[in-house]
Design a protein around this nucleic acid. Structure first.
Lengths: 169, 169
DNA sequence: ACAAAAGTGTTACTTCTACACCCATGG
DNA sequence: CCATGGGTGTAGAAGTAACACTTTTGT
C-alpha cells in the first residue's frame, strides 16, 4: 500500500466490502494519537460514503444501527458519532439525500431519510412544501409496490450531482 | 518528531511562529496525494486557529490578505480557500467570533469581523438586534480610544468558551 | 462647521409552525 | 370495514429585510 493514497485505499476497501463504487464520498477526520493503537503512532484518515442501502451487497462485516453499536476497537465509536453529526448538518444545506435513496422514491421515503438522520419527526405537509420549493425533484411514473394503503406518487431527482443550497431545514 | 502527533506539532509551530497559545484551534483537512510533493507520498494534516490579530507577535513569516495571496508552495492555496469557507459556515452557528476579537470590543469591530469573513456588508441595526438577542455579550466600561467621531460603547463576551448555537446569520 | 462612525424603530414581507380531514389500497 | 400511509390548505407567529436621521466626538 506504499503507493496508495488514503482516499484510494478507502474507496478500494469500500468496494471490496460492499461491491459499491461511484457513490458520494467525503473525508471525515484524521485521528492521530500516540496511544490509540498498541502498535504505536498510527494515523487514521477516515471517510464516509452515502449509499442507498439496497445497493449494498455485503461481502464481509454486517450492518449495525448507528444508535446501537456493538463495542468497537479503538475510538471508532467517536469516529461514527462525529460522522453522524456532520451528516446531519450536510443534509441541511445540500441535496445529498439523493445518495441515500433509489432512483425513484416516494415522499415518504424521502421524509423518512431526513427524520432518521435528524433524529426527529417532521410535519408531512410542511416538509413537502419546503422540499418542493427547492425544485430538485420531478414526479415520475412507477409501479406502486406498497401494500395496505393508498399507493404513493414516485419522484426522482432532476440531477444526481452533489449541490450546495442556500439553506435547507 | 516521531513521537509527536500532528496536532501537537501544529500547536508547537503556531507557538514558535506567533508566540500564541490557548486559542481556538481545529483540524481542517488531510491532504494526501502521491504527487503533491516531490519528496513522494506526503500526508499533510492541516489545522486552523482563530486569533485576535493584535495578540500575534510574528517571529517569522508575514501576514497576507487571504484574498490576495502570493504564490504558494504545493496546494496551499486550496487549503486556505477551504479554511475560509469552513470558517464562514462556523461563524453562522457558533460564537467563535470571540476568538478574533480583544476582550473588550465595539459593535463596529464585531460587525466588521462578520463582514470580512462573510464577504458582504450587513445592516447595522439588524445586525445589532440579531446579535443582542443571542445574549452572548454584555456592555462594559472602557476608554474610548477612537478618534474623529462619537465614541462607541464597549462589549465583552459573557463566556469565552466555544459554543454551538441554533442558527446565526 | 465638517467629517465620520455610533446609535436607534417601524413597517412590509417572507418564512415557519401547528394543525385535521379525506383518499386509495390490501387484507 | 378496518388499518395504513398518502395527500392536501390555512391562519397566526416569528423572523427577516429595507430604510433615514440624530448624536458625539476630533480636527
Amino acid at each position: 500500500m506504499k503507493n496508495e493514497t488514503s482516499e484510494k485505499a478507502a474507496l478500494r476497501i469500500l468496494k471490496e466490502k460492499t461491491g459499491v463504487k461511484n457513490v458520494y464520498f467525503e473525508q471525515l477526520y484524521t485521528f492521530d494519537s500516540l496511544s490509540r493503537d498498541p502498535r504505536g503512532h498510527v494515523l487514521t484518515v477516515s471517510y464516509f460514503a452515502l449509499i442507498d442501502r439496497n445497493k449494498i451487497q455485503l461481502r464481509t462485516g454486517a450492518f449495525h444501527n448507528a444508535n446501537a453499536l456493538p463495542s468497537l476497537a479503538f475510538d471508532h465509536k467517536k469516529i461514527i458519532a462525529y460522522a453522524l453529526k456532520r451528516l446531519g448538518y450536510k443534509l441541511e444545506y445540500t441535496n445529498l439525500v439523493f445518495s441515500l435513496l433509489p432512483e425513484k422514491f416516494t415522499f415518504g421515503q424521502l421524509q423518512n431519510a431526513y427524520q432518521i438522520i435528524l433524529g426527529k419527526k417532521l410535519d408531512k405537509r410542511n416538509f413537502r412544501k419546503k422540499f418542493m420549493a427547492l425544485n430538485l425533484i420531478k414526479s415520475v411514473k412507477a409501479k406502486a409496490i406498497d401494500t395496505g394503503h393508498r399507493p404513493a406518487q414516485f419522484y426522482a431527482f432532476i440531477s444526481r450531482k452533489p449541490l450546495e443550497l442556500k439553506r435547507f431545514f
